[in-house]
């Protein structure tokens, strides 16, 4: 797909990143916030793959591969944290999680 300019791919990635940011900032369910972080990481990966295609730089794929693996690790630990907090407080809404506030 050499007919698509790099700018299109970067704009798409920036839009996806902002979409994920909207999710992190406006949703109050920890699970949805985790998913929004995944959307943001995915957008970053898209810029890496786009740049490596247009600069003929295969190392970008290696970096994107590392990011996918780190995102999987983040999801696993994040969900374990959500589960253990849920067991303690019976909620997944961050407004109810203010153990450190007082």
């Amino acid at each position: 797909m050499t007919a698509i300019p790099l700018g299109h791919i970067l704009t798409l990635a920036a839009l996806l990143f902002s979409l994920g940011l909207v999710g992190v900032l406006t949703r109050r369910n920890v699970l949805i916030m985790l998913m929004s972080v995944e959307v943001m990481l995915n957008a970053v990966n898209l810029t890496l793959v786009g740049f490596s295609r247009y600069n003929a730089w295969t190392e970008g794929h290696v970096l994107a591969f590392f990011i996918i693996a780190v995102a999987a690790a983040e999801a696993a630990v994040g969900l374990a944290l959500v589960l253990s907090v849920f067991r303690l407080k019976q909620t997944t809404y961050i407004d109810d999680l203010r153990l450190l506030k007082r």
């Binding site: 793959v49 295609r53 794929h61």
Partner: peptide, 13 residues
């Protein structure tokens, strides 16, 4: 996104 990776010649990713 995976489909877009294929069009960007990144089949492994």
């Amino acid at each position: 996104t995976a489909a877009l990776y294929v069009t960007l010649s990144a089949p492994f990713l």
